[in-house]
Design a protein around this nucleic acid. Sequence first.
DNA 1: TTTCTGACA
DNA 2: TGTCAGCA
Length: 135
Amino acid sequence: MRDSIRRNMPLFPMGIVTKLTELTPRQIRYYEEQGLIKPARTKGNQRLFSFNDVDRLLEIKSLMEKGVNIAGVKEVLNRPKITHLQPVQPSLEAEARRDLTEEDLHRLLKRQLNELPGRPGQQHLIQGELSRFFH
DNA sequence: TTTCTGACA
DNA sequence: TGTCAGCA
């Protein structure tokens, strides 16, 4: 599916991502330093995050809230979903993996969009970009 | 106006 | 992590 191309398309700048994830720019930049995400850059060196980046950020946030440190987060993220096969093993990893589904992400994005405070111009542009993901 | 990097608390 | 400075 060419869905992956859309999920990896660099679409939003720092400001949008901070609203979507509720993380601070400081945290996001730090996570990038740690190699947890690799957002694209504009010619002006501004970060441009893709859906995948936002997804990863949300997972990082989720993990951090569970008290997992950077090292632990790296462990999970470098483990491209094995969730199916592996018979139960009450690992912290499995525990963390569980609560962030794609549906959760979409639901959260919708909620965030509706809450975006009045800034007409940009908001419309953003909704236009995201709308196709909510078909 | 927004984001970037680096640095200090 | 928060925040400030000095640039693009």
